[in-house]
Design a binder for these strands. Sequence first.
DNA 1: TTTCTTAATTAGCTTTTGTTAAGTGGGTTT
DNA 2: AAACCCACTTAACAAAAGCTAATTAAGAAA
Lengths: 195, 195
Amino acid sequence: MEEFILKIKKAFPYLTDTTISKLMSLGEVQLLQEGETFIKQGERHNRIALVMQGLLRNYIMNDNGEQITVVFATELQSIAPYKCLFLQQPASETTEAVKSSVLITFDYPTMRKLGEEEPQFNKLYMDALEKTLMNAIERVEDFTIAKPEERYQRLLAKHGYLIEQAPLKYLASYLGINPVSLSRIRKRISTGKRK
Amino acid sequence: MEEFILKIKKAFPYLTDTTISKLMSLGEVQLLQEGETFIKQGERHNRIALVMQGLLRNYIMNDNGEQITVVFATELQSIAPYKCLFLQQPASETTEAVKSSVLITFDYPTMRKLGEEEPQFNKLYMDALEKTLMNAIERVEDFTIAKPEERYQRLLAKHGYLIEQAPLKYLASYLGINPVSLSRIRKRISTGKRK
DNA sequence: TTTCTTAATTAGCTTTTGTTAAGTGGGTTT
DNA sequence: AAACCCACTTAACAAAAGCTAATTAAGAAA
């Protein structure tokens, strides 16, 4: 617990000790084993999670019933069924632990309400949102700028830890390609390249 | 001007009249002719724009110096060089009017500061952010779920107005494909389809 | 009007990805 | 150990996208 507080302090240095302890009293610590879910598609839900340890992913289903990993979240990133929170709809995605993980989860309406009295809560939420937005934009940029093979290279360069920890099939759907293609790409890269 | 106020009231019904007039006094109305820019890549900048009329796009350059349209913004959507605002870096993208447009622009640090005293400002900003985030996520989902041809179909279905107003080459890069491919896709769709 | 320019289409060919199916290897269960 | 499961790889072929270049179309400029 102490350890988590330190991590949060480091990531959000403007939070005072009293705010942090308020925060911790509002949050619920949740442990997930590999494969366990934080929220399932179709459920209604109003919690937002801050990842303290481990690796999660959000996935949706395509028309063939295959799982498509839309986003990964690792330490100090937040993850939530955003459309569900913002539009009060059932979640369209499932959030699942890729490996055993620890989250702190917060009730979204409560956080927004408290933010009105506690500027620091608001700031925290906005910072998290802005970070999430930047990640999403970067991801869109990758899709528009780079072809599959280059996307894999960029992923390798920027988030190498993902390649180590997530199975290939998750990575493939994350990159928008099929697993067989990714396997081929890996081979092209490892063997002298081209042709 | 009255017209803009009405639009804002409709889109953000919780804003009181006094807040709206404060807001309008802080905002600067800016007109852009087709092809004119709101911000250019490399500039530093701290304004966020709310589109009141028209159509804008954000584009970046790929390694071949080609413009890649990352996002379109139309009426009542906000657009800004987000990484620039959030990280105080020079903008990596250019915001340009696809057709003649009207914006109201706000100084981002001022807005964040005012939000601390005026909860409505905060709410407005958070709503805008959340909306922008949802759009970005939807876009990532499109890339991961759908192949180029399907992406075009989805774009047609969801944002048909874009197809009418934006030139094909912008749409192609927005879809992550090259203009020649998009032209072919169009043909495949219009003529009886397949082969 | 003619000329220039630029966007979009079309065509031919190359490269990459999708798809299906058959191996391969590691780990688990019995 | 054998049988099984699953992820990943490999292969072969089909389908789609990339690339280059030529053609057409439409608008702006002379």
